[in-house]
Design a binder for these strands. Sequence first.
DNA 1: CTTGACCTGTGACTTAGGTCGAAGGTTTAT
DNA 2: ATAAACCTTCGACCTAAGTCACAGGTCAAG
Lengths: 148, 148
Amino acid sequence: MYKIGELAKACDINNDTLRFYEKNALLCPSTRSESGYRLYTEKDKETLQFILRAKGVGFTLAEIRELLSIEVNKADSACADVKTLVDSKLNDVETKLAELIRFQTSLKRLSNACCGGAESAEHCTILEALESDTNDVRHEHKLNDKES
Amino acid sequence: MYKIGELAKACDINNDTLRFYEKNALLCPSTRSESGYRLYTEKDKETLQFILRAKGVGFTLAEIRELLSIEVNKADSACADVKTLVDSKLNDVETKLAELIRFQTSLKRLSNACCGGAESAEHCTILEALESDTNDVRHEHKLNDKES
DNA sequence: CTTGACCTGTGACTTAGGTCGAAGGTTTAT
DNA sequence: ATAAACCTTCGACCTAAGTCACAGGTCAAG
């Protein structure tokens, strides 16, 4: 049995995070001591590690709650249910990825176009790009310029 | 001169967003009418468009505030200052990108390993991967498995 | 002269995932 | 027996970028 601080230290998280997970129905300690201290079992620790691993692949706590409800009750769920969660998450991730790649492309273009010198910024190509709506900074669509 | 609703509509944002930008020192209307209405000039509109374009390439409002302070005072800033902001943002973006790619890789691996069938999830490879700490789900380091 | 569309300011609420402080109870070691 | 190190609950605070509600003032049309 772990007290809160012991489990937290063992898993390298904050005590408050554990309380937060409890409040949000992710991980409730199996028992309490006479005096009300949370007592976590080895099984609780495994659940916590499940949570941390799921966080590690990008799941939100709400999604992890879903995964856990399948996990505690495996026999009544299908593989397909689990895979759906993973694929839907993968979709989210790829959407965000696409946005970040647009950012990256635009920023690289801005950076490459700028001399970066100590001269006054009066003719800075970056500022000019942000000022002008012709020659949209955000998308390359028909710009047919090459990344240098 | 635009009233708040006119400028908001012209730029397809919310009136409250404009008030929010004002409160956060991003865009103050040049004047007010007798009765206190905000009045935005054409120049204000251009500044707003600058802000929206900068948002479009991924800058936060705090960063845009920095860009604007250079923009209003170009002569006293160097190109290098601007480029530094862009490069530092690019760095942020690439850090986030790296994390999302890790998520993507892990999720793809989980998804590919799962049959996704209607069978009970009792032996679901996804759940097993999240349960076990051997065979870490998050990183490929020495797994030398191939993406199918 | 009233109705409706607009504007004002203030302050609260949202999401996500915690983190912190205060006031007090418990355990353990000395 | 008392101090240090733990634990409890509760509630407030944090970031980011808004969004919404409320109570009231203004403006143009009919």
